[in-house]
Write a protein that binds this DNA or RNA. Structure first.
Length: 681
DNA sequence: GGTAACTGGGTTTTT
DNA sequence: CCCAGTTACC
């Protein structure tokens, strides 16, 4: 660790590369060092899974800072917030505490948009719409347009938002997107087109900015004739992580930030491109970088994470993933072969997964060192039941987010209203919580609120316009919210919001849900102001309810259950992948197109390469026809098409539970109970 | 005209 | 479990 910078390394930001045997270089292999110490020419780092990509990027950041780059002129763009924070912090530690700037594309875009509200035509500020709010707005408009009750069922609001978003992120025409991905919606193309243009107008009118808009506005700012170059010149260095998952909008942004590629570093792995559904084009940024003069390519192939036994499996899958070739070599040695466990059915699969988790735990592995990775959030349903029944603590990542749970959305809506009484989406949601107010009444009241100067200050008028039976509860809610507006501290505001919504949540759902809201209140209390907190949690939502519980206790140990998507970039000593059957991995929805299937293969590759020491794949021989079917009709299922002969050759196949298990799962759907209390009486 | 209560069908992945 | 569509009631 150095304390003061040696004179030899004191250089301007555009100095030539040089090897300084300094803190940032400690423990790097040759390829990583070359990447970290690279000069100002465009750099493309092709990094296979587990090859120390993050290390290389952190070291590069540290090296740049160390050479004298101004921290505020170095920008790191990542895919997930956590990755950015961690890398900036680690690089800062290596570089004498100086921190570069960075975050996800969306959070950096948010900063840019907040800075240039006048240029963008939002003089009074704007609110950020998360996907669920965007979908609420779409719902509101769908009904306004009378598209709800047509003879031909019109797509759901959430689907509409998906389609809209895909058009923007892929830069494709609506007709193309429909043809490619939503053929069953094609007949509604015209209605959708007009709905979409009103949706855009309505967002603009209400100063509402959704995720896609953040990127669109950032790009628009960067494209401005005078402002654009000024913004780009703020940064001498732009580093982009996970380049394979950028969509064409994000690629445009990178191009505008670094028009000649000077100071541009791009890191990623095309075999891990798993966000095609969001408009990601893995090769796009690689081609951009390689098109610049003097571009350098560095390949990281030495794998520090896994044993060769695991990489052998991964390499087979990788070989058919496309993209630039990288073959992973383990530095850790051979290790054990990965196992393929054949199970009688999905129920015994769940039991075996938990058996193995607990056995490893007995052998000394913490639960935190293990993970269960699934393709779709519901694929872990049975495993979760088994985990609960056997008392194994776990946290689930991916799938439904904490913020998307109904009562949490209600709380957030009320909070948004206190912050901005013009937020019609929040009004719509809050009003419908009251008994006697349904969609139609709420819509009429929202119209009235839109017309009002400050609908929350004029709350008595809103109450007067509501149907009689709703008036008393509504007046209590609004009175509370109006009073809460007088508070300035985030903590006091959050408490006020909770008081306002608590009775509604209690009557609509159950008492238990209030506990979640209390956690939300304590999280909000730590924030400086409520509006900032709202924007923050919208752009970067907590990944699981546990994220709000504060720093975990030292003795807290839990298994991770996660979607493969959410597991990207992470690693565990032992990884369990259940449901390795056709229809799950690869998922049935993706089977119809070539691109879909390719992406499923890459997803499988991501799952395999999360494991450090041991990898278990499970395939049940039978699965219920429908995961939630109430009867237990089971059908035989096929092993995943990805597990071909070449792959099986690298696996240890274990035939477990060929026979139907003697007892059903503990805790599962107990229909018969025996009352023994008379015995003890 | 509008709401609540009931019923039947369906569910990929996320910033 | 969540949504959409249907029906019965105000």
């Amino acid at each position: 660790m150095f304390v003061t910078q040696p004179a030899v390394c004191e250089r301007g930001p555009h100095s030539r590369e040089d090897d300084c045997p300094e803190a940032w270089a400690a423990g790097l292999n040759r390829a990583q060092q070359i990447a970290a110490a690279h000069g100002d020419q465009p750099l493309l780092v092709l990094a296979g899974a587990g090859t120390g990509k993050t290390r290389a990027l952190v070291s590069r950041l540290a090296c740049l800072l160390h050479r004298g780059a101004a921290p505020e002129r170095v920008l790191l763009l990542t895919f997930a917030r956590r990755a950015a924070d961690e890398m900036l912090l680690r690089a800062g530690d290596l570089a004498g505490g100086r921190r570069a700037v960075g975050g996800t594309f969306h959070s950096v875009a948010h900063r840019a948009v907040s800075t240039y509200t006048e240029v963008l035509g939002f003089p009074g500020g704007f609110s950020v719409l998360g996907p669920s709010e965007a979908s609420d707005l779409m719902e509101l408009m769908r009904a306004d347009y009378g598209l709800a009750g047509l003879s031909q069922r019109f797509p759901r609001a959430a689907t509409l938002v998906e389609i809209y978003s895909r058009c923007i992120n892929s830069g494709r025409l609506l007709s193309e997107v429909l043809e490619l991905s939503y053929p069953w919606c094609e007949r509604h193309r015209e209605n959708m087109a007009s709905l979409f243009s009103s949706f855009t107008a309505r967002k603009r009118e209400g100063a509402l900015v959704d995720f896609d808009d953040l990127l669109l506005y950032w790009r628009a700012l960067l494209s401005q004739e005078k402002l654009g170059p000024q913004l780009a010149e703020q940064f001498d260095y732009v580093l982009v992580d996970e380049y394979q998952d950028l969509n064409h909008l994000q690629v445009d942004i990178v191009r505008l930030l670094s028009p000649q590629g000077r100071g541009l570093t791009v890191v990623g792995d095309e075999a891990q491109a798993i966000y095609g559904f969001r408009g990601g084009g893995p090769a796009e940024l690689r081609q951009l970088v390689l098109g610049y003069q003097g571009a350098t390519v560095v390949r990281l192939e030495e794998n520090f994470r896994s044993y060769q036994g695991i990489l052998d499996v991964a390499n087979v899958v990788r070989s058919s993933c496309g993209g630039p070739g990288v073959t992973l070599r383990a530095v850790r040695g051979e290790g054990r072969k990965a196992k393929l466990v054949r199970c009688y059915d999905a129920t015994s699969e769940a039991r075996l997964v938990v058996d193995h988790v607990l056995r490893a735990h007995e052998d000394g592995a913490a639960l935190q060192d293990q993970a269960v990775l699934v393709r779709a959030a519901h694929h872990s349903d049975l495993t979760e039941i088994e985990l609960s029944a056997r008392g194994v603590p776990y946290r689930k990542y991916g799938g439904l987010k904490f913020l998307e749970v109904a009562h949490v959305k209600d709380f957030v809506a009320a909070a948004r209203l206190v912050d901005n009484p013009h937020d019609e989406i929040a009004w719509y949601r809050l009003l419908r919580l009251h008994e006697g107010v349904g969609a139609a009444t709420a819509r009429a009241l929202v119209q009235q609120c839109r017309a009002a100067v400050d609908a929350l200050a004029q709350w008595t008028e809103v109450v007067a316009a509501a149907p009689p039976r709703a008036r008393s509860t509504l007046s209590a809610t609004l009175h509370n919210l109006c009073r809460t507006r007088g508070e300035t501290e985030a903590a006091a505001r959050a408490v006020g919001v909770l008081e306002a919504v608590a009775p509604l949540v209690r009557s609509r759902y159950s008492e238990g849900r209030l506990a979640d809201l209390e956690r939300l209140v304590s999280a909000a209390s730590a924030a400086r102001d409520l509006s900032g907190w709202l924007a923050e949690i919208t752009i970067d939502p907590p990944q699981s309810a546990g994220d709000f519980a504060g720093p975990p206790h030292l003795d807290e140990d839990f298994l991770v259950v996660s979607t493969i998507h959410s597991a990207k970039g992470l690693e565990w000593a032992i990884v369990h992948v259940p449901h390795v059957v056709d229809g799950c991995i690869p998922i049935d929805m993706a089977l119809s197109t070539r691109e879909g299937l390719d992406e499923e293969r890459r997803l499988f590759y991501v799952a395999l390469t999360r494991a450090r020491d041991q990898l278990y794949l499970y395939s049940p021989l039978r699965m219920p026809y429908h995961p939630r079917a109430s009867d237990d009709r089971h059908g035989l299922v096929k092993l995943s098409r990805f597990v071909d002969d070449a792959l099986v050759a690298k696996l240890e196949v274990v035939e477990e539970a060929r026979a139907r298990p003697a007892f059903p799962l503990v805790g599962m759907d107990v229909r018969v109970s025996v009352d023994l209390s008379s015995l003890w009486a």
